[in-house]
Design a protein around this nucleic acid. Structure first.
Lengths: 126, 126
DNA sequence: TCTGGTGTATACAATCAACAGACAATTTAG
DNA sequence: CTAAATTGTCTGTTGATTGTATACACCAGA
């Protein structure tokens, strides 16, 4: 499972990890019922503490995407999350689009970005 | 200048304020050379400390969108920001879109959201 | 049962977010 | 020109968050 973290990113590390795993799940690279790597392995790959990854896993569990079992590992449960955070996601979308507009990108350029991102996110859906 | 903050939003207050003002600038509701309200006024409207707003203003200044002068107020400088943060904005976009997909929204529904947001952001451009 | 692998809990230091209050620069009233 | 009002800035404090280190607890297989 290939993920990275970016020092300059203002999101906390555990959040970046959680977001990247969400992407893997959405893209189907981590199918339902598949096992996630152990927290220690991901931590070692990224050079961070295992608890940092554990926090990310717990967040994903809280959102209903994976199931974490003490002793056994973590497993992908579902590709659909509880809807209660949809408004938050909408706000984040708005902020991201605003930033891109302020960066000088045209509407067409932004739509191209969105389509590209959505393509990999939704092409492999069941 | 009408902005709000949301307790349940995980972004810090100053970030929410900065993001909302960015939206106002992008939409042209705060044109170039216009004055922003004093930090104390915004703080009073939102019921937060003036320093919280000051931090938001400083961030906007750092991004080159406004100019803050001690004694005088803050002024909108430009509707185009330094491009060095475009990658960050791209990451934010990716995360937001992923969340929406995982919330079960279809590609068409998401595209509708994006188009709506982009409409208000780019319709009033020079 | 024992052992290796797995997540969890606790404790700690560093950083961040928000606040309160004093300070400094600028503008404006007189 | 000066004083007061207006405006942003700085310093310190508090509590929450972030990331780490270390010890603990659960699970599966030999």
């Amino acid at each position: 499972m290939y993920i990275t973290i970016d020092e300059r990113d203002r999101r906390p590390m555990y959040q970046q990890v959680a977001d990247e795993i969400k992407g893997l799940i959405a893209r189907g690279e981590l199918p339902e019922n598949s096992q996630l790597p152990p927290v220690r392995q991901v931590a070692a790959d990224l050079g961070v503490n295992l608890n940092t990854i554990a926090v990310a896993y717990r967040q994903l569990q809280k959102e209903g995407l994976i199931r974490v079992r003490h002793g056994s590992g973590a497993t992908v449960v579902s590709r659909v999350r509880a809807k209660h955070d949809e408004e938050r996601a909408h706000d984040r979308l708005q902020a991201a689009l605003t930033d891109l507009v302020l960066s000088g990108l045209s509407r067409a350029e932004i739509l191209a970005l969105v389509n590209k991102a959505l393509g990999s996110l939704t092409s492999a859906r069941t």
